[in-house]
């Protein structure tokens, strides 16, 4: 009558437990067995202590890759083979979507995540000018939705927690975005009943300002409304997926809009409808 004895509480299982890689049944069974096994709990604790924000650390390594040199090498290789490189420098690939596997969230993980994102910002969140150049974005020309979604894919709840929280700073950033875009952005206009406003950033894409207004959905999932000036003809809302994120995008009145987040399409479509009405 001791199910714990029959449960697999090997280090391997405990790692899978930490990584949330067990099926719900296995997970329940393991949690159960753990509650009756102090020795295994101690091992679990040790394995947890061996967790690090691996994903963020490896992302930083990706940022350090000598991109131009690699592309030059590839072009050279193609030329030597008598072929032309058909794809240019559009290859700044966002990391594959990761499961939360590096252990629980904590201040230092947030710091590491923020540090990685900081690489994308020339300035920093608190600087007055706060006109991030998002250099990886600016040096590519893969289309604004691709560039912006690649960037948004790096965002986590913790990233947004690093944004200015006081009302005055938020207003100032929002109004600065309105100014550079030439598009009125009032609190009412950017409000959405399904979303909790977090802040505004101005990025730059090929010399054009791009406003990213950030929100949290359900208190934890980052959602962004991105706006850029465009010469394109008006276009009704369309849904697409990039970098594992859902996107609803449309063009209206000389502006391209995009609502993006890791939330189901229908939900995102509902959210975008509010914005479409407010920007009509």
């Amino acid at each position: 009558m001791a199910p714990a004895d029959h449960s697999d509480l090997s280090d391997e299982t405990l790692v899978a437990f930490i990584d949330e890689a067990l099926s719900p049944t296995e997970r329940r069974r393991t949690a159960d067995a753990l509650s009756r096994n102090a020795e295994a709990r101690a091992r679990l604790e040790r394995l947890r202590r061996g967790g690090r924000p691996f994903g963020e650390a490896f992302d930083a390594l990706l940022q350090a890759a000598p991109e131009h040199r690699l592309h030059a090498m590839f072009a050279d290789l193609m030329a030597k083979r008598g072929e032309t490189a058909t794809v240019g420098f559009g290859g700044n690939v966002a990391p594959m979507r990761r499961r939360a596997r590096s252990g629980g969230s904590s201040a230092w993980q947030m710091a590491a995540a923020a540090a990685v994102v900081a690489l994308a910002f020339a300035g920093g969140l608190q600087t007055a000018g706060y006109f991030g150049t998002a250099r990886q974005i600016a040096e590519q020309k893969p289309g604004w939705r691709e560039a912006a979604s690649r960037y948004v894919a790096l965002f986590s709840k913790e990233t947004l927690e690093g944004m200015p929280r006081d009302q005055q700073a938020r207003q100032a950033n929002l109004q600065r975005a309105a100014q550079v875009l030439g598009l009125p952005l009032s609190d009412e206009r950017i409000a959405n009943p399904a979303l909790d406003f977090q802040g505004t950033q101005i990025l730059q894409l090929d010399g054009k300002p791009l406003a990213q207004i950030s929100y949290l959905f359900d208190g934890r999932t980052p959602v962004a409304l991105c706006i850029i000036r465009t010469a394109n003809a008006p276009q009704t809302a369309q849904i697409e997926e990039r970098h594992g994120l859902n996107i609803v995008h449309w063009v209206k009145g000389g502006y391209g809009f995009m609502v993006i987040g890791d939330i189901p399409g229908p939900e995102l479509e509902r959210i975008s409808r509010t914005f479409r009405a407010q920007f009509s």
């Binding site: 690090r52 691996f54 963020e56 350090a64 000598p66 991109e67 590491a112 540090a115 990685v116 690489l119």
Partner: peptide
């Protein structure tokens, strides 16, 4: 420093520390 001019890894000490351990 070789990262195409993105030599601002000092904002990234924690990431670097993790990599050292790895």
């Amino acid at each position: 420093l070789i990262a195409d001019g993105i030599g601002e890894m000092d904002t990234n000490l924690l990431a670097r520390q993790v990599l050292k351990e790895v």
